[in-house]
Nucleic acid binder design. Structure first.
Length: 209
DNA sequence: ACATTAAGTGATT
DNA sequence: AATCACTTAATGT
């Protein structure tokens, strides 16, 4: 059984699976490697096979804000928007952990929309999920204070990594939340004092998450 | 032993 | 909550 069938068989028709299989390119990305950047033309539809991908909004100065993660079985809704016609990416995507992504030329997008019900369902389901996560990101930004945002960030990360031991620096957290390292350090120190986590260099060990 | 990078902290806005 | 300026601690060479 091919890797496409393993990951996507429950979603797609046999015929669609074969089309994907025939036109696929599979790439591996190491942790922190960039998959796409704002302004880059979208020429492929991505399917996440393994790992986790961070989707970030980035301004012209390179300032970032984490929007959501993509995991196995996901595609990127933001990118798909660009598949009708040759549009440019509005987001930055980087591998959060080592990841494997399958790509199919974006020209198939419109064809499959007409041809396959299972494709339309897949696209809509993904849109719904990512739109919800985008709303969560907005809520977090608008209604949560920094401490709450960091707690959400850490618990999201735990879900993605599947471990309570997170290898990351305060600086990295600050970048994802578009804050500053000093602010993050102070809040983490406070959380450590209240027993929610333990701070090590390049590593956080979470307790109550 | 020294340099580099991560994290801690007081003071100011 | 952000920034500055400085200190302390951990890690690599």
């Amino acid at each position: 059984m091919s890797i496409v069938q393993e990951k996507f068989s429950y979603m797609f028709d046999k015929e669609l699976l074969e089309e994907i299989d025939k036109n696929k390119v599979i790439k591996k990305y190491k942790e922190e490697s960039i998959i796409i950047e704002p302004g880059q033309e979208v020429t492929f539809i991505p399917f996440i096979l393994e790992g986790a991908v961070k989707v970030l909004r980035e301004d012209e100065n390179g300032e970032e804000l984490l929007l959501y993660y993509l995991e196995s079985g996901d595609t990127c809704s933001m990118t798909l928007t660009c598949c009708y016609g040759r549009k440019k990416s509005k987001i930055k995507a980087i591998a959060d952990i080592e990841s494997e992504i399958l790509f199919v030329p974006s020209s198939f997008f419109a064809v499959w929309m007409e041809k396959y019900e299972s494709w339309r369902n897949f696209i809509l389901t993904n849109y719904e999920n990512k739109l919800n996560e985008l709303l969560e990101a907005i809520d977090s930004l608008a209604f949560y204070n920094m401490e709450e945002r960091i707690i959400k960030y850490l618990s999201d990360k735990v879900k993605i990594i599947g471990s309570l031991e997170l290898d990351l620096t305060h600086q990295k957290i600050a970048e994802d939340l578009h804050s500053s390292r000093v602010v993050v350090s102070r809040i983490l120190k406070k959380l450590e004092k209240s027993g929610k986590l333990v701070i090590h260099r390049n590593r956080l060990i979470l307790k109550e998450f």
